[in-house]
Amino acid sequence: MELLNELFSTLLSTIYDVAPIIFIIAFFQLFVIRRPFFRLNDLITGMAYVLLGMTFFLVGLDKALFPLGSAMAQQLTSPDFINPSTDQSISIAWQDYIWVYIFGACIGFATTLAEPALIVVAIKAQEISGGSIKARYLRLAVSIGVAIGISLGAFRIVSGIELHLFIIAGYVIVIIQTMFSPKLIIGLAYDSGGVATSTVTVPVITALGIGLASTIPGRNPLLDGFGLIAFACLFPIMAVLAYAQFADWTSRRASPKETEQEGE
């Protein structure tokens, strides 16, 4: 019964979230384009699937992942786990947080693989590119990017190095990579950052950031807890560009003649 209640209230809030989208689409379709919807039945069943799917997805995450994920983030960052000796005077070095970095990388990788928005964008990219971009590899590249980003972001919170130094360095790397990347991938790579940080990833890494910033002495949770999402947004761009460069390089090595013809 409690479960039913939860499902129902989540369904309501999902409908509330989607309402502006439906309203805008309906307004422009009916009053500006002035044509009836193409395959209205399919649209309505599809929308019902989306709403129901989102509801089950959110309730399920709330039951299976979020409470445990946040609890784990808190336990891994708590002083009892980091420094089990009773002598609290021993100061904590950044190396002591090694499990936090590993956990951040693993959970970031895993949640990004499950990110619904990324799944559909990857399928789309595979379709448009005629299969030269593989959905699975693209998602793996983005996930690896998020994994690196989160563990580096956790290291930043622990070490207290300024956020913007990392971000600026990241931008410089992205710009250099862009100059050497195949043109086809650039748009998709730039998009991948925003796509990677959605429903599944954001709550878990937010919990990790707040856990870290509130347990490390001298950190202000309100100030230093931010920034992990920015890392998780930036590193997939590098990872996807690197994947494209690697794929380009291997295909050129495998068949130098064929790529030359394509280039003309």
Partner: peptide, 18 residues
């Protein structure tokens, strides 16, 4: 729930929003 929800969501997207 998560598995079922993800499946429905992706199927629905391919029929509606896309």
């Amino acid at each position: 729930f998560v598995v079922l929800g993800l499946t429905l969501f992706i199927q629905g997207l391919e029929k509606s929003l896309f």
